[in-house]
Structure formats: C-alpha cells, structure tokens
Design a protein around this nucleic acid. Structure first.
Lengths: 114, 114
DNA sequence: AAAATATACCTTGAATCGCTAGGTATAGTA
DNA sequence: TACTATACCTAGCGATTCAAGGTATATTTT
C-alpha cells in the first residue's frame, strides 16, 4: 500500500508523538490522555504502547527520564527530541495524504461531483 | 486499539468494497480504479489484493463469476452480496469514527479551541 | 517472426504490528 | 487485610502487507 510500513503503527506513532508535543508525559498518562482527547475513541493497550515507546527511544525520536510523583511513585517521562519532531511532521503529512485518499475513494473518486 | 483488528486491513477492505458498490469489477481493474479514484495515492499490490478478495468471497461478502473480455481474455469479476453491503456499511462507520478520533487528537483534544 | 511488455490471475515467505495475557511492584481504599 | 488503581514491562499469537516469485494470454515493438 506504500506509506511506510503499517498504517496502524503509523497512526499509533503519530498519536503518541502528537501527545508529547504538548509536554512530556509518562506511559500510563498517555493512555489516559489519548482516550480523553479522542473522546474515548482510543483505548491504547499497554502491550501496544510500551514497545512503541521503547522503539522510538531506541531510534532517538524520544528521550526519557525518571521522576518521582508527589505520591512517591516513580514515573518514566518521555520527551520529544528534535528528530522526533521531524518524524512527527512526516507522520502528519502521511496521515493527511492517507486520509484524503480514503475519503476521495469513499466519495466515489476524484471526478465525483462535489 | 479496538476497531476490529488491523486498520490497514480495515481500510483495504473498506476501499475494495466501496469500489464494488459502483459495479462489478475484476481484480486487476480494482487496482487501477483504486489508484485513479485516490489520485494515485493508493497502489495496492496484487499480493495484498487477491488474498483479501478470496477471503471476502469465502465469507460470502462477495460472489464471483468468470467472463470473457472482448479481447478474448478471461476475467474474474467480483460482485457485492447483501452481506457485503452490510459489511461495507459497518466499515464505513468504523472509518468515520477512527478518522474523527485521529483528527480530534491531532487538533489537540476534545476541548481544544475550534 | 521474435521479443518484450501489458494484462490477469495466483501463492509463498519474511517482516511488521497490535493485542492478549501474563508478570512485577507500589499506593490508596474498603 | 484484601482489593483496586497506578505504573512499568515482555513473550507469543494472529493478522496483515509486501516482495518476489510463478503461470498464461494479448498486444506492441523490434
């Protein structure tokens, strides 16, 4: 299909990077934020989230640091790197194209009446 | 993530069923039509297409028949069944939800300014 | 006429990705 | 004390895409 490999992954990554654009977050928080911002449309599973975060950090799209919460619990925060912001921009463009492509087809093709 | 399993597959199936809504088509033709209607955004591979068509037919979402082209070549046409139209409706709804969810997140969440 | 390309169908195998299902540990609540 | 919520993690399954191959016929080029 082109669009890199895997669209779901493309979307998951896009979504997570987007969250981090508005500030550093820890994994568990991202799941909640994603649900909230999507009006409960997305409930990402931990088994989906953590491997993606680890892969993104390994590729230097994210960096992480540990921080103690007021509660006393330790949390692992993730932060967008420069590279990460570039990836986010690419993923956004990719999503726009994909999204437009699907909608064009659903509307009956490029030459369909508006 | 919910949304059935796999979004790409969800999209591929949605796209193919949508094509067949406007008339019976054979596989090779679907690839061309998909490309045309999406303004060349989508170039589905044969290795992606045929297994999907076979699976959809097996599940009675599609039926097929062979027909000779004027050229003399034989083509295998696929036709939407009643079940297939229902599946299409479901997939469309699913896409709308997903698409809205992603855009909500990209715009900064449900409570972002319009 | 021969060779190359386009049409048209198909399958196998590698790679990728999400999810289920498990695990660990700590803080708060019943 | 036990249960739930928070917070992190991983292994393995299933599903899917694509590259790469195969077969065969029609058309175009050389």
């Amino acid at each position: 299909m082109k669009f890199d490999k895997g669209l779901m992954a493309g979307s998951s990554t896009l979504l997570l990077l987007t969250l981090l654009e508005s500030g550093d977050m820890y994994g568990y928080q991202m799941i909640e934020e994603l649900s909230r911002r999507s009006n409960d449309a997305f409930q990402m599973q931990e088994g989906t989230l953590y491997p993606i975060l680890h892969a993104l950090e390994k590729e230097k799209y994210l960096s992480s640091y540990r921080q103690l919460a007021p509660s006393g619990r330790e949390r692992k925060y993730y932060k967008l790197t420069r590279r990460g912001r570039e990836l986010l921009a690419d993923k956004r463009t990719e999503w726009e194209k994909f999204h437009r492509g699907v909608n064009d087809v659903l509307r009956g093709g490029a030459d369909a009446l508006a």
